[in-house]
Design a binder for these strands. Structure first.
Length: 522
RNA sequence: GUCCCCAUCGACUAGCGGUUAGGUCACGGGCCUUUCACGCCCGUAGCAGGGGUUCGAAUCCCCUUGGGGACACCA
C-alpha cells in the first residue's frame, strides 16, 4: 500500500454513509469502526452522512438508531452541521439543490436523458433478458427521443426517469485491499440516476457528495464493488475526481448469508440492551476482518487506533460468532470494578421486577467520600430493603459467571424471594436416600443454629460445616454441601453455599433449610 | 443466467517459498472444586481438488470446485 505511506496527517477525509432504512446492524457498525480507525490513525476527518434520498424507505427513527448506536460505540465524527457546538450528520435530503445543479448540467450536456418507459415494460424486458441468459439491462428505447417527443410527453405529464448514457468501455479501478478490478460497462446498461430533476438516486448523490465533501477514501462494504465502476463513470461525466476505494469483506450470519440480508436485522442497540459492553463489541468487530498478526485478542479502541493498518484487513468474509462475543463480554465484565458492575446490573434487576427503583436514588450519592451510604432498594417480593452495598456483595459472587448483564436476574433472583420453587430431587446428591437428605438437613440446621449472629460469616460458616462434613464420615463433601446449596439457592448451579448463607443471613438460611426438609417425603 | 470478489481447524485468524502449520472462541480431558463459572494444564481438529513454476509450495501462476456479492424508479 505504497500510496498510504504518502499520506500526510490531516489529509484523510472519510465518511460513514448509512441509509436510514433499517436499524444499525453489525455490518454497518464494523464499516463505521474501520472508517473511524482509519481516520484516527492518520489524523483525518470522519464524516457522518445520512444517505436518505429514498424518502419512501428512510425513517427518522432509523437515523436516530444509527446515531445512538454510533454514540454508544464511541465512534465520534468530526464534522457536520450541528447545534451547541456538537457535530451533526449531513443529510442528503437537505442537499437537493446541489444535486439538481449537477443533474441539470448533465441534462444540458445530453449525458443523461428522459426515459418514459413504464415499470411494467421494464420488468418484462428484464425478465426476457434473464431468460435468455443475458445481463438484465435497459433497452435504450428512450435514448434517442426527439426534442418534440420529450416535450410532448412532459406536457402530458407522463412520468419519467433520468437515465445516464453509459459509455461502452472497460473501467478499471484500484481497490486498496484487492488491487486492480476491471469491469466492462456494457453489462450495466443506462442506469437511472434520478426519478426526476428533484429526486436523484444513490449512485449520483453519492458521487457528488463524496466530491463536494472532499472525501479521499471510501471505505465501505464489498457489496458496493459493482457500484464502483458506475460511480467512476458518473464522476467522469461530471468532470470530477474520484477518491480511493477500499471494500471491506462482508459479515455473515451463522447461515453464511449477508447480515443485513437476513429476515430480522438486529440493531446494535439491542446488544446494548442485552447487556453487552461497547468495548467488547468494538473489540469483537475489529477482530472480524482484521488481525494485527500477533497472538493477541484484547484491544481497546485506543490500542486499535495505534495498531490499525489497512494491510492487515482480511479479504474474505467473516461469519459472526456470538460465542466469541459472549466470551469477550464476559472477559470485560470480569475487568470491571464491582461498584461499576453493580450500577450496570441494577437496571436489569429493576426491569425483571426483582427490585423497585430507588426513589431518592442519586447515583453520585451512593458513594460519599469513599463510604457506601445506605440507599435501599425495595425488593419486590419480600418488601425488604437491600442496600447498594448488599447488592454489590451479591453481584461479587457472580462477576466471574456473568456473560452479559441481562443474565444477572435469573442468576441471583433467589436472594430476593420468599419461597423457592424447585423439585425435591434437586436436594439429592448422587445416590442419597430421602432419609439421608433429611438427616443431613437436620444436622445442618442444628449446627448453623449454634453459630452466633456475630460469627455469621462465610469463613466461620465454612469452618463449622467442613468440620461437620468430616464428622459425617463421608469422603465426599458434596454429601453435606450439595443439599445445603440446593436448599439455599433452589438452583442446579450457583455460587457456593457459604457465601450464599452469609449474604442470606442466619434467619433466612435456617428458614430455607426448614423449607427444604418439608419437601422431602419419607 | 451474466459480471465481480473470496478460499488455512466447526468459527475468527497467524503464515507473505524451507514452520513439528501458531493463537483465540467452541468442543473433549485434567487440576482446583459440593455444583456452575473463573483460573491453570493438556488434547481433538485445518491448508477444497487438480495441474504447473521451483531443489523446495499453505504461500507464486492456471483450471476446476465451492462460498458470497451485484445485476432496481433501494442504498
Amino acid at each position: 500500500m505504497e500510496e498510504l505511506k504518502l499520506i500526510r496527517p490531516g489529509e484523510i477525509r472519510v465518511r460513514m454513509a448509512p441509509s436510514p432504512t433499517g436499524p444499525m446492524h453489525l455490518g454497518f457498525a464494523r464499516t463505521a469502526l474501520f472508517n473511524y480507525l482509519f481516520a484516527e490513525k492518520y489524523q483525518g476527518t470522519l464524516i457522518l452522512r445520512i444517505d436518505d434520498t429514498d424518502i419512501q424507505r428512510s425513517q427518522k427513527k432509523w437515523e436516530k438508531d444509527i446515531i445512538e448506536g454510533l454514540n454508544w460505540l464511541g465512534l465520534e465524527f468530526q464534522e457536520g452541521p450541528g447545534v451547541d457546538g456538537k457535530f451533526g450528520p449531513y443529510r442528503q435530503s437537505e442537499r437537493k439543490e446541489i444535486y439538481q445543479k449537477y443533474l441539470q448540467k448533465l441534462l444540458d450536456e445530453k449525458k443523461i436523458y428522459y426515459c418514459f418507459c413504464s415499470p411494467e415494460e421494464l420488468e418484462a424486458h428484464r425478465n426476457y433478458l434473464l431468460s435468455i441468459g443475458q445481463p438484465p439491462r435497459y433497452s435504450e428505447k428512450c435514448a434517442e427521443l426527439s426534442e418534440r417527443e420529450i416535450e410532448e410527453n412532459l406536457k402530458n405529464k407522463k412520468s419519467y426517469v433520468l437515465r445516464f448514457r453509459m459509455s461502452s468501455k472497460k473501467v478499471r479501478f484500484k481497490d486498496l485491499l484487492r488491487g486492480e478490478i476491471e469491469y466492462d460497462s456494457q453489462n450495466f446498461g443506462d442506469i437511472v440516476v434520478a426519478k426526476n430533476l428533484a429526486a436523484p438516486l444513490y449512485n449520483l448523490t453519492s458521487v457528488i457528495d463524496d466530491f463536494e465533501m472532499k472525501i479521499t477514501h471510501i471505505i465501505r462494504g464489498e457489496e458496493h464493488i459493482p457500484n464502483t465502476p458506475i460511480q467512476i463513470l458518473l464522476a467522469e461525466a461530471l468532470g470530477i475526481k474520484t477518491p480511493q476505494y477500499l471494500h471491506l469483506p462482508l459479515i455473515f450470519g451463522l447461515d453464511r448469508a449477508k447480515l443485513s440480508k437476513r429476515d430480522r436485522v438486529k440493531s446494535i442497540l439491542e446488544y446494548k440492551e442485552e447487556g453487552y459492553l461497547s468495548v467488547a463489541l468494538i473489540n469483537f468487530l475489529a477482530l472480524l476482518g482484521w488481525n494485527p498478526g500477533a497472538n493477541k485478542e484484547i484491544f481497546s479502541l485506543l490500542s486499535l487506533i495505534q495498531e490499525f493498518s489497512v494491510e492487515k484487513i482480511q479479504k474474505s468474509g467473516a461469519v459472526f460468532n456470538p460465542q466469541k462475543l459472549d466470551w469477550l463480554n464476559g472477559f470485560y465484565i470480569r475487568q470491571k470494578s464491582l461498584d461499576k458492575l453493580t450500577e450496570d446490573c441494577i437496571p436489569y434487576l429493576i426491569k425483571t421486577n426483582l427490585i423497585k427503583p430507588c426513589l431518592e436514588r442519586d447515583k453520585h450519592s451512593l458513594f460519599y467520600e469513599g463510604k457506601v451510604i445506605t440507599t435501599k432498594f425495595e425488593t419486590t417480593e419480600t418488601g425488604e430493603g437491600v442496600s447498594f452495598y448488599e447488592l454489590m456483595k451479591i453481584i461479587d459472587l457472580y462477576q466471574a459467571r456473568l456473560k452479559k448483564f441481562s443474565e444477572i436476574s435469573e442468576l441471583i433472583d433467589f436472594f430476593f424471594k420468599k419461597k423457592l420453587d424447585y423439585s425435591s430431587e434437586l436436594l439429592r446428591w448422587k445416590e442419597m436416600s430421602n432419609e439421608e437428605i433429611k438427616e443431613v438437613l437436620d444436622k445442618l440446621s442444628k449446627t448453623l443454629n449454634k453459630l452466633e449472629e456475630t460469627d455469621w460469616t462465610k469463613k466461620e460458616i465454612g469452618e463449622v460445616l467442613l468440620k461437620l462434613a468430616g464428622e459425617l464420615g463421608k469422603e465426599d463433601r458434596g454429601y453435606l454441601l450439595w443439599p445445603l446449596r440446593a436448599a439455599l439457592s433452589g438452583k442446579t448451579a450457583s455460587a457456593g453455599p457459604f457465601e450464599i448463607a452469609e449474604l442470606l443471613g442466619k434467619e433466612k438460611t435456617l428458614e430455607r433449610i426448614r423449607m427444604a426438609k418439608e419437601k422431602i417425603k419419607i
